[in-house]
Every structure is written in structure tokens, then in C-alpha cells.
């Protein structure tokens, strides 16, 4: 594997994931009554990498993306929340991918919901309160819907990017 080409490739992937995270912030809130709902657009890149390049690149790009976006656009607290969501989401997606009983859509849905669960668990830990189940219910539904859309997008990209473009 050509080292400089793979550096460039994963750099572009990270940049894409960051841009998608930024675009997401610019979008109007989908459901104003419960703030904080996001599409999870960067997960398209993560799902793509997970299926076409394996778990290690997916983990690397995801964690880099979270760290960079938090440093650029928000604060250390946001980094903690995003990181816990991203880590749980990656874990769940990698395990489900290995178990191989769900398609890309199912894996992406699980990843989306796991991201929400991770963030809420972190919030419960930091705020020492268990009264966040209200969010969990709403976020499970929105996470599922977002996961389906992201999974469909991801599976199209996974199928259509030819392997010769990914040969280094």
C-alpha cells in the first residue's frame, strides 16, 4: 500500500466527515421541541470506511473528526459528549458488521441510536441524574429514522465507488 496515497485518502475522508458535521449544524432544527437532534451525516463516511476499508480506518477517521470538529466549533464539554457517542456507535457498528446479520441500513440505524445512547449515558454520568430518559425515547425514534437514511446513502456509496479508485 502506497503510504502517501493512503495518507491523502484518509485525510480527504476526515475532511469530508468534518464538512458534513459542519453542514449539519447549518441545517434548521428538524424538531424544535426537542433540540439537539442531528442527522449524523458524518456517519456516511464512517459506514463507508467500515465496509470498504475495515474497522481501524473507520475508528481513526471518526475519532479524528470528533476531536477536530469539537476543537474548531465548540468546547471541551461538547468533545466529551461527542466522543462518548462516537465510541459507543463505532463499537456497536463494528460488532454488528462482524456478526453479519444486518445490512448496511441496520448497522447504520444501530450506530445512530448507539450514538444517542452514548451521549445520554455521558450526560447522566456528568450531571449525576437519571432523569434523561425523556430524551432517550425521542432520540431513539429520530436516531432510527436518521440511521435508515444514512444507511441507504451509505450503501449506495459503498456499492458505487469502484475498488480501483481505492487501490493505493
Amino acid at each position: 500500500m502506497n503510504k502517501s496515497k493512503s495518507v491523502a485518502f484518509f485525510g480527504v475522508c476526515t475532511a469530508l466527515a468534518m464538512i458534513l458535521a459542519y453542514v449539519e449544524v447549518l441545517l434548521p432544527p428538524i424538531f424544535p421541541a426537542v433540540p439537539g437532534i442531528k442527522m449524523g451525516l458524518p456517519n456516511i463516511i464512517i459506514v463507508f470506511l467500515l465496509y470498504r476499508r475495515g474497522p481501524i480506518p473507520a475508528i481513526a477517521v471518526s475519532l479524528l473528526r470528533v476531536a477536530l470538529v469539537s476543537m474548531l466549533f465548540s468546547n471541551a464539554m461538547a468533545l466529551l459528549y461527542s466522543l462518548s457517542g462516537a465510541i459507543l456507535s463505532l463499537l456497536v457498528m463494528i460488532i454488528l458488521r462482524k456478526l453479519n446479520f444486518l445490512s448496511t441500513v441496520g448497522v447504520s440505524v444501530a450506530g445512530g441510536v448507539a450514538h444517542n445512547v452514548g451521549q445520554i449515558l455521558m450526560a447522566m454520568l456528568l450531571l449525576e441524574t437519571s432523569e434523561l430518559f425523556y430524551y432517550l425515547v425521542v432520540l431513539t425514534v429520530t436516531g432510527t429514522i436518521a440511521g435508515i437514511l444514512i444507511g441507504l446513502c451509505g450503501s449506495l456509496i459503498i456499492k458505487r465507488i469502484p475498488e480501483r479508485l481505492l487501490k493505493f
Partner: peptide
Amino acid sequence: HNRNDIIFI
């Protein structure tokens, strides 16, 4: 896989 997806969702 697709059937499992639907059950899961």
C-alpha cells in the same frame, strides 16, 4: 439481511 433489518428497526 433486509428482513433482519426490518425486524431490528
